[in-house]
Amino acid sequence: MSNDAAPGAGVQSVDRALTILEHLARAGEVGISDLARDLGVHKSTAFRLVATLEQHGLVEQTEDRGKYRLGGGLLRLAGATTARLDVVQEARPIVRRLAQATGETINIAVLADGSALYVDQASGSSSIQSHNWVGQRIPLHATSNGKVLLSGLDPRAALAAAGKLTGYTDGTVTSRDRLAAELVEVRAVGYSVAVDELEVGLTAIAVPLHNMHGDVIASMSVSGPTFRLDAAARDAALGLLRAAADEVSARLGYHSAAGATSA
């Protein structure tokens, strides 16, 4: 097969696979013969497409052998999108309130394709013409949000997810051993501080947001100029940040051991 034909064949396969998913969504359970007829392909081709979808959990075989239905993998994918939307929806009023209380910029970030994706932001009274980070992806190893998100992963997976440790300033963590040590500390204390690591003059503090299972599904940060967020200011902001994050996590169904004990 020539190289020119391969891309078209690949696109056709994707189109057929998506057609199968749409057909199963409408019909519920469908056999290979019916799928092949509707696609206008040989049964062996339909079977290969379904087998590939089955490997990824997107379809599954029913008890009536030979018939297939949509698989749990689609729920996983849909759940990831729903969870992201839920975080923004539940956090938004709290993010706005926290921005007013601290006077600084508040961001919500989620893990996405080896980076931290900013999904919401609110600016405080001190953040004149703050940069809009929403929709932007930032490196995981050079930011407080990124380190909090990495801390929710298995240690080995976290280092792999961090990717190349590019240096942005003299303060950027570029050693994997150092990053691993920092993530151990983040897990222990429950927050991360990044001073002049992504940009000189920018400081941020981040804490995790948890779902009902206790997983770290997002991070919330307070950021501002380094000269304004000195040690004392960071300590004050951290208390407000933690309280806000606890409120968001509770809205998402999370009940911490500390919260259960105090109750």
Rank of each mutant, 00 (worst) to 15 (best):
T52F: 09
T82S: 06
A112T: 10
F227V: 15
T143M: 08
M220V: 06
D64M: 13
T102I: 01
I205E: 03
A257Y: 09
L209P: 03
T45C: 06
S44A: 09
D177P: 14
P155H: 05
V148E: 06
R178H: 11
V41Q: 01
D34K: 10
A112K: 08
Y168N: 11
V134T: 08
Y254G: 05
L229F: 07
V59G: 03
A250N: 08
V200M: 11
A142C: 04
E60M: 09
D196R: 10
G73I: 02
A27I: 06
A243G: 09
A181Q: 14
V87E: 04
A257I: 12
A233M: 14
R84A: 08
V148C: 06
L165F: 00
L241R: 02
E54T: 12
D120H: 02
A36G: 12
S2V: 06
R76M: 09
A17K: 09
V134E: 01
M212N: 14
V184R: 12
T105N: 07
E63C: 10
L149V: 07
F227A: 13
L53P: 03
I217W: 01
Q100E: 08
D170M: 15
A236E: 12
L98W: 10
T143R: 05
V50A: 07
Q61R: 12
T102V: 02
E60D: 02
R137P: 02
R178D: 00
D154L: 09
V186Y: 00
A78D: 11
L77R: 15
V134N: 03
S123K: 15
R228A: 13
H131T: 15
V222W: 01
D215F: 09
L179C: 05
L53I: 02
A51H: 15
S151E: 07
H213Q: 14
A245C: 13
V222H: 08
G72T: 09
R156G: 13
A194R: 07
D38R: 14
A6H: 13
T19Q: 13
I108L: 15
A188I: 03
R37I: 06
E182Y: 12
R137V: 00
A142P: 04
P139M: 04
